[in-house]
Design a protein around this nucleic acid. Sequence first.
DNA 1: GACTGTGAAGCCATTCACAGCT
DNA 2: AGCTGTGAATGGCTTCACAGTC
Lengths: 209, 209
Amino acid sequence: MKMLKIPEPTVVRLSLYSRFLNQASSKGIDIISSDEIGSAVGIPSAQVRKDLSYFGEFGIRGVGYRVRELCSQVDKLLCVNQVWPVVIIGAGHLGLAMSGYRGLQDRGFDVIALFDANPAKQGELPNGLPVLPMEKLAETVREKDIRIGIITVPSASAQPVAETLIEAGITAIINFAPTVLNVPSEVECRNIDLTVNLEVLSFNLGMRG
Amino acid sequence: MKMLKIPEPTVVRLSLYSRFLNQASSKGIDIISSDEIGSAVGIPSAQVRKDLSYFGEFGIRGVGYRVRELCSQVDKLLCVNQVWPVVIIGAGHLGLAMSGYRGLQDRGFDVIALFDANPAKQGELPNGLPVLPMEKLAETVREKDIRIGIITVPSASAQPVAETLIEAGITAIINFAPTVLNVPSEVECRNIDLTVNLEVLSFNLGMRG
DNA sequence: GACTGTGAAGCCATTCACAGCT
DNA sequence: AGCTGTGAATGGCTTCACAGTC
């Protein structure tokens, strides 16, 4: 085991393993093999073992992995054994959808508040979450020590919003706007771009016939 | 130029180039260099040229690329110079957000209808789109020759919904549910998984301090 | 016999660097 | 001089295959 410089694809798969292991764990499964994990998430078993081997030896040769143990180890690696407060910028359809998404809470991401520049959107949501004006952002981020921001504003406002977030102290961004954001290298930004995904499908459909 | 077997990362970037080129084109820019394209989408210029070179020679040595021409070439490669009808399964927050998303229409993806198993959700949306019962799916897909489906149902229903879609004739799926879908190899499925993305951020935040 | 952990090999994408045009 | 197109070099992820352990 060598540690340091983990391939990003490995981290992505770790998240898939974690989800599956949590399910298996709550089903009461005790022992599981790399082969079972792999086929559950659609990945070869050698890859599963290699991924885990970056971080240590979690299994028992000839036997497999103890589910509860592996599960908590992987969760610790991903830092999802803690609560991460997040803010959502943009209280449109998408922002509201995200704020009501149970999967976030379940995985330890806690939406503290939404923010929207439009006063008409501000107030309190049915689920109790506040929608605040952008002016309150820096204060909230500081007080709750928030690192993660989710951008769901229209494309044209995404870059200025990102800058406001970074100014406020955010260092990790999920961007749903169909734009490549320009951020300093110490800020990590991941784009979730529906259009790009559709166009990859479109390309591949075109390749066939 | 060798054609055949295009790396997927290349296709993803093609979509970014296309978006940028369309913007540049409507700004009236005539000529652009691989360097300008690259810095706009955050990619080295050599990569831009290599990506394009898989498909032909679109530029003029010593000069650059003619924007309008390159734009239409790239759009043709991505097959976004045509209209793709799509269906959305799940009329929850996320499905509604998608159905109202202007970016789809702009890029030639035409939402024909939403589908939802819950009769209370069925009817007509404010924007005029119908929300139909699942039973109407196969008929709609056949009549409108639809290839692409977007799944926005909860995780537990995603697999059966995917099967229904495939049964109905869909061959390309965008899946927003946090599950790995089991689909035959001739069906292409792309997952858009917020949780995974957040957990990659969480992992990287943990690596720092 | 079954399954993990891991060097080594293989494969694929990115980057380099330069010849070829304008 | 400036910029594209591309073979060659590099780097990195995945797959293989087998020694090690239970």
